[in-house]
Design a protein around this nucleic acid. Structure first.
Lengths: 120, 120
DNA sequence: TAAAGAGCTTACCAAATGGTAAGCTAATTA
DNA sequence: TAATTAGCTTACCATTTGGTAAGCTCTTTA
């Protein structure tokens, strides 16, 4: 029974991790973990290279998955704050482990890529 | 100094994890971990829904990063085998942790998504 | 009167990702 | 003679992701 990997709809790997493994999600989660409560523009400035559109999309997806809480203060100009939920916080150690692994292996991986390129 | 997150070129998160967080990489790594040495078509059948092109692309990227070893036997018809490298194996525990987290939180996350949809 | 401010959304476009189907090699098998 | 085999690659196309720039709200400040 090799085909246990092919059930797309109910596969938590595909279903959950694809939301996390995109361009910005891990970065936003890491920043919210380190800095705590942050406003939209604070996250925007912290990353620098993200567009408002992508930050908005990313935050919405994280909110939809219950990883980030969005607090709206009904004032003008608007004030919106974001922070990790309990669920979001429970993800952080795993992200940190992954990031640690990535940092440790970064140079070796870059070397491998160069070698591979030369042989192609 | 908030802008420590914005150095794109040298950021291991972006540079390394984007290769892992795509549609197929984690799945292929997990299968190679569980099944050991596998031929191209065996991986193909194990996943079922991946195209040959994407499997080929995914394996090449993993090989380029030094996570998977590719062994070619010069026979006809060709025989090519894949297995995890030491580096690849060192990533497995982190992937398993992430997968474990995803499995544990899968139902809650699906609930959150439904609630979020209803409020939008 | 007009600009600024925060937090978006929208329209439009470019790039990356992924899928389908066909083709290739060279020997073995029917 | 022609199909089959394994492991791809290629051409072509559709979808998804991501970027840029403009616009919107409503009040305060210059």
């Amino acid at each position: 029974m090799l085909n246990k990997y092919s059930d797309i709809e109910n596969c938590p790997i595909r279903n959950v991790l694809n939301h996390i493994g995109n361009k910005w999600s891990m970065l936003v989660l890491s920043i919210l973990d380190e800095e705590g409560l942050l406003r939209f523009n604070e996250i925007h400035k912290a990353i620098g290279s993200i567009s408002q559109k992508m930050l908005s999309t990313t935050l919405k997806r994280l909110e939809s998955d219950g990883l980030v809480k969005r607090k709206v203060h009904p004032v003008i100009p608007p004030r919106v704050e974001y922070e990790l939920t309990k669920r979001g916080k429970s993800l952080i150690p795993h992200i940190k482990n992954l990031v640690g692994w990535a940092v440790e292996n970064f140079n070796d991986i870059k070397d491998s890529r160069l070698k591979f390129e030369r042989l192609s």
